[in-house]
Amino acid sequence: MPPVLETRDLTIRFGGHVAVDSVSCAFHAGTLTAIVGPNGAGKTTYFNLMSGQLTASAGITLLDGEDVSGLGAAGRAQRGIGRAFQITNLFPNLTVAENVRLAVQARGRAAASLFSLWSRHRDWIDKADHYLAEVNLDGVRDTVAAALPHGDKRKLEVAIMMALEPRVFMFDEPTAGMSVDEVPIILDLINRLKARGDKTILLVEHKMDVVRSLADRIVVLHNGQLVADGEPAAVIASPVVQEAYLGQAPKAEAAHV
């Protein structure tokens, strides 16, 4: 089966610093890949390159075999790449329900009338309410997004991404800043997306217990390079990962374990 998302020699330089260095990796439908590595390894930058927030210095990103390197974030989102950020990305002055309804309506190809009267669009309202219930936010549907606690803002961002119905879900530290009680809700959501078997899910995460519970595969970045790629238990136990997390220099060639 061909990959849904793929990078070939993807590279970005900031002045003399190479933040992502010739990373080639393929991601398939029905799998959840965790991208891990020490601070400064290039994980979020790699995400930004794949989702179009940054423009690569070299290399390409392919979606369904088509080079989408010339598309920005909006163009890639329209093609089916969904992205949740470390820092929430919401309409702060709209209510919780309005944030999700806009995503539902955008998915319905009605971008020209995003602020039209909602009561005329019962199906959009019902869909939005469904996604709010999925993340346990139906009880605060009329609250302005800016007034939500951090954990609820993260859940709202996930609801928005789900409402856009992407084929690729990219989660950048989805549990960051959440309380112990809130974390299981997001992990359960991601598990349910994975169980559908038709989504390609990428996860940047520092918490190894989260990685172990969710990932089918782990990709390790260190100093912008891909240094390990394989089944979770083997990757976590491998010398190259131990060296990377201890801050020592790993082997230049990726270890497939």
Rank of each mutant, 00 (worst) to 15 (best):
A112W: 14
P239Q: 11
M161K: 02
K153M: 15
L10E: 13
P92M: 05
G59S: 08
G16R: 08
G224T: 13
L62V: 01
E243L: 12
V23N: 14
A147G: 04
G59F: 10
F171H: 06
A111W: 13
T33M: 07
V227N: 04
M50Q: 13
L62P: 00
E243F: 02
E6M: 11
Q248P: 00
K194V: 05
Q242I: 15
I35C: 08
A97P: 00
H150A: 02
S51G: 11
S238A: 15
A254H: 02
I12V: 15
A128T: 08
G80T: 03
A34N: 12
F27R: 12
E243P: 01
E243I: 11
L10D: 11
L137Q: 01
Y245F: 15
V144E: 12
T88D: 04
A73S: 14
G247L: 03
A159G: 09
V20F: 07
A112L: 13
L117E: 06
D64W: 07
Q53G: 00
P232T: 10
F169P: 09
V220H: 07
N93D: 14
I35G: 11
V36A: 13
V158D: 00
M170L: 13
A34T: 12
G30S: 01
F47R: 09
A254L: 02
D216W: 11
S69Q: 12
S51C: 15
R8Q: 15
A77V: 07
G15S: 08
E253Q: 14
A84F: 01
K199T: 06
G80F: 03
F47G: 13
V36S: 01
G230W: 00
L132W: 01
N191T: 13
T175A: 15
R141L: 01
H130W: 04
N223F: 10
M1L: 07
V23C: 14
G230E: 06
Y46W: 15
V135A: 03
P149E: 11
V227H: 06
V20W: 05
E157I: 02
T143E: 09
N93V: 07
E173H: 11
